[in-house]
């Protein structure tokens, strides 16, 4: 109880700090992409995540590892504001994702294991819907042909240009995944959260995603990748966090994460 109150007190202080900081433009220290202090999330009586302290600077890439049910997906959903933390203080780019969704959400995207597609909408229609909804102020003033051209270009980048006119219901799991990955291009976010980006993809698709994420990283985007595909994912990420039963049990370089370490780190703490 006491620790919660202390934490609560400190986060209040933190929030006033950040308000004055944003009020004074002289403060040029770039905000962390992610700052989590004592974040926990409870579903009913069970804690899915507890005592999560994370600081991720802009441009960093972090690999999130853990067994099924270790809290990876819950953490990603917390980070993108789809879930509210039960306790603790979570800030993305200095703002709370739940309180200021319109400041935070345009700057991030989540590629979930759900693909967020409408069965009866074609690939091209999905792209155009996302482009429209992304509320890029230039979109609605762009002529229709230019929009069309841009949408087709985007489909080419994921290798779906041949299937542009087919509804999503006809797509294989891998093709759905490719299409949903396209969102990271349209919204051009600064922070990209990926939940199992390599699942359901063939080797060519996995290479495509790897190249793509490497490019995003080179452009200074922040990546958080939750994946069981340690080999591919550790190539992409510099740092790694190991989660076990909702808590962080190991932090270090992504290159050091092997199946052996994973077993060791999780066993020594259970």
């Amino acid at each position: 109880m006491a620790s919660y109150d202390q934490r609560h007190g400190s986060c209040e202080m933190h929030s006033t700090d950040s308000i004055t900081a944003s009020g004074e433009p002289a403060c040029t220290q770039p905000a962390n992409a992610v700052t989590a202090r004592g974040v926990g999330r409870r579903f009913g009586r069970t804690w899915a995540l507890a005592h999560i302290d994370i600081e991720i600077k802009q441009g960093e890439s972090v690999l999130l590892v853990g067994h099924n049910g270790s809290g990876k997906t819950t953490l990603l959903r917390l980070l993108c504001g789809l879930l509210r933390p039960s306790t603790g203080d979570l800030r993305l780019f200095g703002s709370a994702p739940q309180q200021q969704p319109f400041e935070v959400r345009p700057r991030l995207t989540l590629v979930s294991h759900r693909t967020y597609l409408y069965e009866q909408l074609t690939a091209l229609e999905h792209v155009r819907l996302w482009m429209g909804l992304a509320m890029d102020s230039t979109y609605h003033s762009t002529p229709a042909e230019a929009q069309e051209r841009r949408a087709k270009e985007l489909l080419e980048t994921v290798g779906l240009e041949q299937r542009a006119a087919d509804p999503a219901v006809q797509f294989s799991a891998g093709m759905r995944k490719r299409l949903s990955l396209l969102r990271t291009q349209i919204e051009d976010p600064d922070l990209i959260l990926l939940d199992e980006p390599f699942s359901a993809l063939d080797p060519a698709g996995q290479d495509m995603v790897t190249d793509w994420l490497a490019q995003l990283r080179a452009r200074g985007k922040t990546l958080i990748v939750a994946s069981h595909a340690l080999e591919q994912a550790s190539k992409l990420c510099a740092k790694a966090i190991v989660l076990h039963t909702g808590q962080i049990v190991w932090r270090g370089a992504a290159a050091d994460v092997t199946a052996g370490l994973l077993t060791h780190a999780t066993k020594s703490n259970s």
């Binding site: 789809l82 759900r114 967020y116 409408y118 069965e119 909804l133 509320m135």
Partner: peptide, 15 residues
Amino acid sequence: REDSALEGLALVPIE
């Protein structure tokens, strides 16, 4: 709800 499309819309974020 079929493919949690609503969640995808919330992420954009949609008005």
